[in-house]
Computed example of a mutant assay.
Amino acid sequence: MSKKEDIKDEEINNEQETAQVEENQEVEVEVVKEEPTTEELLATEKDKFLRLFAEFENYKKRTTRERIELYKTAGQELMTSLLPVVDDFERALTHIAEDIEAEELRKGVLLIYNKFYNTLEQKGLSKIETNAGDVFDAEIHEAITQIPAPSEDLKGKIIDCVEKGYKMGTKIIRYPKVVIGQ
């Protein structure tokens, strides 16, 4: 039996040696495959650089765009809060114009109103012109009510402007409130 055991041990040893040789060959093959050439390394690094550069350029453009937009609309909240003051001035001027004895008062209020409104215009505020008889446009006007049109040609058109609209640059900050004919 010792010969049989020796033969079995020898076969087991041979199998183990064969397995080790195969593993060594696979490791050598893997090592050869894992090592990239200098051209490949250069290409991957160049690709990484180009992607990073493009990402940085996009970041710069986005922040510049955001900064410009911020400058354009920085005073929008302040302008919106000052619009009721402009409305009050206009109502006061309308009321004072009816009183003949208050001519000096009207001149003083008109002077203050003009100075105040000119300052707002210098900061980018402009009035949206809305007149009776204009065609109603839902993108520009805000309809607060509809009444029967006094004539056929005023159907679907503006009959009265209740509150004036304003814009800052190209952005509308308050839509004109209008009454339209039905």
Rank of each mutant, 00 (worst) to 15 (best):
E17C: 02
L78S: 12
N14K: 08
A102V: 07
A19Q: 04
L93M: 13
R62P: 01
K164H: 02
K127R: 15
P36K: 04
T94V: 11
K46S: 15
Y71E: 06
A43L: 12
D6F: 12
L82S: 05
E17R: 08
Y59S: 06
T63Q: 09
D160I: 00
G169S: 02
L154W: 01
P148L: 12
P84K: 09
G181A: 02
I147V: 14
I147R: 09
F49T: 07
E57P: 02
I144P: 05
I7H: 09
I128Q: 10
T38K: 14
V178I: 02
E23T: 13
G75I: 07
V135I: 15
V86G: 04
T18L: 06
A132K: 10
R65G: 08
V179F: 00
K61T: 12
V21T: 11
E103C: 05
V27G: 01
G181M: 01
E103G: 08
L154N: 03
T64C: 10
A143G: 04
T64W: 10
T44C: 01
E98C: 05
Q16D: 08
E103R: 13
G156V: 07
M1C: 07
F89K: 04
K72C: 04
E101N: 13
P84A: 11
E66D: 11
K157W: 00
L52W: 03
L93V: 04
A149P: 05
I140Q: 08
A92K: 07
R106N: 09
I68R: 14
C161Q: 09
